[in-house]
């Protein structure tokens, strides 16, 4: 029943001699909420960027809904610099731009909010509807595809209503309070009709109460839109409450994976977060 949504296979991201993500493999199944945690600088956001096409991984493959989506092996000068294994396992080169990946059905939010801050809340959501509309610049300019525009507007209105943001529709996105900007960013990501939602530290800068609200919110949208959620988060309350499974990264390497209970008692994870004393 649980269909595989995201399959990351031996992904390595190397910048020159620095290995930011080292041989990362993980799976996310349909309907799950999976968290990726780790100390600062562990390579979590880099891993997200490899999945969403912002970076082209040095080696490895990312499959989405069973189909290879990103694939690469060390080329050019990376051939010499590449220090990992599995270089021969991925003969193809597939490197779609981020917009292609969004079109396939992966939406994301950003660690530091990236709204179109000078535009209205409504426009922010409408822009996310742009790629799925059946129009081109000509029909759109001369209002030949006015029906499509109307449908986009209706969909955006409906989405804002569901997210309780409709009353802010004409506000300038950049002028909203921080918490609402976060919610709007998630709403905007939902407007692309994703199957998989990647959240990069959705609770950053939130107080405990807001974090609790966010926890419920993520579960709610998962059920409502039949989503799969893969997120990076530092708030352990949220992560432990909400996650079906957790992956732990440290220095680019996967050091543990399992249910929240398993992770909480994992000695390597505790060491990674607290540091290992030398005389132990």
């Amino acid at each position: 029943m649980s269909e595989n949504v995201l399959h990351v296979d031996h992904v390595t991201m190397q910048f020159g001699g620095v290995v930011a993500v080292n041989d990362l493999s993980l799976d996310v199944d349909q309907g799950e909420i999976v968290a990726l945690i780790g100390p600062n600088g562990a390579g979590k956001t880099t891993a997200f960027n490899c999945i969403t096409g912002v970076y082209e991984p040095t080696n490895g493959r990312v499959s989405f809904l069973g189909k290879p989506m990103v694939e690469n092996h060390p080329q050019g000068k990376m051939k010499k610099l590449y220090s990992g294994e599995h270089a021969e396992d991925y003969p193809h080169i597939i490197s779609p731009t981020p917009d292609k990946i969004t079109q396939l059905g992966i939406a994301r939010t950003f660690q530091n909010i990236r709204l179109f801050s000078a535009l209205s809340v409504f426009d922010n959501v409408l822009i996310a509807k742009h790629m799925r509309a059946r129009h081109n610049w000509f029909t759109s300019t001369f209002r030949i595809s006015a029906k499509e525009e109307k449908r986009m507007r209706e969909d955006a209105t409906a989405l804002l209503e569901e997210q309780n943001l409709l009353h802010l529709k004409d506000e300038v996105a950049g002028s909203l309070p921080y918490g609402i900007q976060r919610r709007l960013e998630i709403a905007r990501a939902l407007a692309t009709n994703p199957k998989l939602l990647l959240l990069d530290e959705p609770a950053a800068g939130m107080n405990p109460q807001e974090t609790q609200e966010l926890t419920d919110f993520i579960k709610e949208i998962r059920d409502k839109y039949h989503l799969t959620v893969f997120m990076i988060e530092h708030h352990m309350d949220l992560v432990m409450q909400i996650s079906d499974r957790i992956y732990v990264l440290d220095f680019g390497r996967l050091i543990a994976s399992g249910t929240p209970a398993e992770i909480q008692s994992n000695q390597r994870v505790i060491d990674a977060y607290l540091g290992v004393s030398n005389d132990a």
Binding site: A107, I127, R132
Partner: peptide, 10 residues
């Protein structure tokens, strides 16, 4: 970056 993440082909 956000535009691209919203599926807009830059």
């Amino acid at each position: 970056i956000a535009a691209e993440a919203m599926g807009i082909n830059l």
